[in-house]
């Protein structure tokens, strides 16, 4: 069977999805990135290989997520796309006629508006990561309740405690206060969900028209309390797709499929053996001008596979695609 691989490496989770030629999910893997994207991708490849057991011939690979360029070098990607496009494409594929995508990930959150399967508008959280998955993670550790149980607790509350969601620091002190005055844990957890939803709608939706169908995806969609809080706040049904946690990877695989339709040819995929390659990364400060850019290098057996990080582009190289990106100018002082 032929398949398309999508890999989404974010700040918190690393997801891989294998799709068949019709875009159906054959198999997927969801892992924690734990600050080591290369290892996470390799671990994911091994797990996926074990699940597929040689039944799939990979003919296209797409990568997305904040480590999309790095991941593309590691696995051999045919297309690199940002996570907004990937999530939108996946939602459009899975949820018929979807018009709004609510996505909350580890360190960012986005809202995407679609018409006829095409993104017409989107918004992403700005400098502040308040109200994203890592905040929930942090609270679960503090309360000593596994994040997987958050939803169950939240649904056990009749009403939520009122918690300030503007800022994670304030939200936390508010929660501590509510605990001390005797609110039940369930009410506090549901109150937290409501606060995150309020924050999300204020910062991202900003009064835009939320006409359904609405899809809610990303790791945080696992929390049934969040779904309920969304539905209460916008007074509409919110659908959580079956593979909500790996929608980015599904989108990347669909984009790889689209790419291969447009430009047929062999895939750059390195094979599942890429899990065993000893990738080494190192960094150094350029020193060519006052910007002192930090340059990242990915090396295998003394061969530099990729290098990036500079502002002027003089170090940028992507050997896999045999590309040397055009520098702004040889004169480093022109950086900036």
């Amino acid at each position: 069977m032929q398949g398309f691989l999508g890999v989404d490496v974010g700040s918190v989770s690393t997801n891989l999805a294998m799709l068949d030629a019709d875009g159906g999910v054959i198999s997927y893997v969801y892992l924690r990135t734990q600050g080591q994207p290369i290892m996470a991708v390799q671990q994911g490849l091994m797990e996926l290989e074990a699940k597929l057991d040689g039944s799939v011939d990979v003919i296209g690979v797409g990568t997305t997520g904040s480590a999309r360029y790095l991941t593309s070098v590691v696995v051999g990607g045919d297309i690199v796309k940002n996570e907004i496009t990937a999530h939108a494409v996946a939602a459009g594929h899975v949820v018929p006629g979807v018009r709004v995508v609510l996505e909350i990930g580890g360190q960012d959150s986005k809202i995407i508006f679609l018409r006829d399967g095409i993104v017409v508008d989107f918004a992403m959280n700005t400098v502040c990561a308040a109200g994203t998955g890592s905040f929930l993670d942090h609270q679960s550790a503090r309360l000593g309740i596994p994040i997987e149980d958050f939803g169950r607790y939240a649904l056990g509350a009749e009403k939520g405690a009122l918690i300030a969601g503007r800022c994670s620091v304030f939200a936390e002190s508010d929660m501590v206060h509510k605990q001390q005055v005797g609110y039940k844990l369930e009410e506090i957890i549901y109150g937290l969900c409501q606060a995150l939803v309020r924050n999300y709608l204020n910062n991202l939706a900003k009064g835009r028209d939320l006409a359904g169908p609405i899809a809610f995806q990303g790791g945080v969609a696992a929390n049934a309390g969040m779904k309920k809080a969304f539905e209460e706040a916008i007074n509409q049904e919110v659908q959580v797709p079956e593979h909500f946690s790996v929608m980015g990877a599904i989108g990347a695989a669909l984009l790889a499929k689209e790419e291969k339709l447009l430009e047929p040819g062999p895939s750059a995929f390195k094979g599942f053996g890429a899990a065993k390659i000893d990738y080494r990364t190192s960094s150094f400060a350029c020193g060519g001008c006052e910007n002192n850019c930090e340059i990242i290098k990915i090396v295998v057996d003394d061969e530099t596979l990729a290098r990036w990080g500079g502002r002027c582009g003089k170090w940028e190289v992507d050997i896999i695609r045999r590309q040397h990106l055009e520098p702004i100018g040889a004169d480093c002082s022109k950086c900036g």
Binding site: D108, G117, I118, M124
Partner: peptide, 23 residues
Amino acid sequence: SAEGGFLTRIEAFVDMLSRKKKL
């Protein structure tokens, strides 16, 4: 400002416009 987040937004915006135009 981290360059990564900045780039993601620009890429997504340009992607959105070009996919729209293609359609």
